[in-house]
Simulated scan of single mutants.
Amino acid sequence: MIIVAGTLIILIMLLALYIAFLQRQLRNINRQLDKRLTEHTRQPIRLELLSRELNALAININKCLKAEENLRLKGIQEEKNFKELIANISHDLRTPLTAIKGYQQLMKNGDLSADQLKKLHTAQKHADELGRLIEHFFEYSYLLNAEPELNIKRINLTNLVAECLAASVTTLEEHNLTVRLEETPTVFVLADKEMVTRIIQNLIRNCVQHSNGDIKVSLLATNKAILSFKNPMKNTSVIDINRLFDRFYTGDKARSNSTGLGLSIVRLLAEQMGGSTAAFLQDGFLEIRVELPL
């Protein structure tokens, strides 16, 4: 009995040591995985192994990590290629459009009948719209590829919004739209004035293209400045609110006068200044909010 008891004690001690060793190896795996996550290293998992199962686990973890790294590098390359593609397309489209507008101007200066002038005017409107779409491509490709040089200053956001709305009165009237700017205390932000101006212009353009009624603009200062554009939508069922800021997303596929880049540019500019964007859809109204640092 003493021999059996002694043997059992020895076996229990050996088993306890083995379990402690396995726990040490598991802690080592967790420590190395944490290091990869926090320090963004690409080192494979290394162990002092006695267990075949742990050895197989480490090998499979390393295979998964390698596959994930390959996917990450592939995604980076594809994103780079995509940015270059957008830049090249926007550049290549500008040259023939300039030629088209030049020939249209020559035709306008010629001897045309009233019917021909009407058709030429229609063609010029489409050419101008194409020009605006190309400018969106060019702006987006520039923002993606260029390192932003921010000129952060304290600017009067309330006055800037009012100025941009006043400059867009003609366009708004052409689309039978009116804007109501809510009266609130003056809001100041720490931001790049040119970038904020482009944000406001894109928000106005988005409303002009998609609003089914008058536009409500409001400003609010909490821990951040909140700029809100709210407008009614004719068909809210076609809008995926979670994809609204995705590039090239257009809710209404029948609309051909939008690249789906306007709100993507808004988000990109806001994030470059430390801000954020959000969209809300309620009771037939679409609200776009932009938050900027005070």
Rank of each mutant, 00 (worst) to 15 (best):
E84L: 13
R94W: 01
T186S: 12
L71V: 14
R94L: 07
L65P: 04
N206A: 10
P44T: 10
Q116Y: 04
K230W: 02
I239W: 14
I2M: 07
I86S: 03
L15P: 01
K125A: 07
E149R: 12
A254C: 03
T170N: 11
R205D: 15
M1V: 14
T277P: 02
P148H: 04
Y249Q: 08
S256A: 09
R52I: 14
R255Q: 08
Q272R: 07
A279G: 10
N55K: 07
I76M: 11
Q124C: 07
P293Y: 15
E147P: 08
N231G: 02
V161F: 06
K83H: 05
D115V: 14
L261W: 04
Q201V: 09
D252Y: 09
L50T: 15
K118E: 07
D92Q: 13
L292M: 11
S168V: 00
N62P: 06
S141Q: 05
I89Q: 09
N206P: 01
I241N: 07
R46E: 13
D115S: 15
Q201M: 13
L93M: 13
A166S: 13
G260H: 07
D192M: 03
Q116L: 12
L26R: 04
N28P: 00
N159D: 14
I241S: 06
L15K: 14
L292P: 00
L71F: 12
N231Q: 08
N235G: 02
A221K: 10
A167F: 05
K108P: 01
I12E: 05
D128I: 02
I152T: 12
N109A: 04
G102T: 10
K83F: 01
M195Y: 12
K108Y: 11
F229Y: 13
L244Q: 06
L281W: 02
E163R: 01
C207D: 14
N212T: 03
Q23T: 13
I12W: 07
I29L: 04
L157S: 05
N88W: 04
L14R: 14
D214F: 03
L49E: 09
L143D: 15
S237N: 10
K66E: 15
V179W: 00
T222Y: 02
E194D: 14
K63T: 10
E68R: 12
K216R: 11
G6M: 06
E135Y: 09
V4L: 12
L157Y: 08
L281I: 05
F285Q: 10
V179N: 00
V266P: 06
V179A: 01
D283H: 11
T38G: 01
E39F: 04
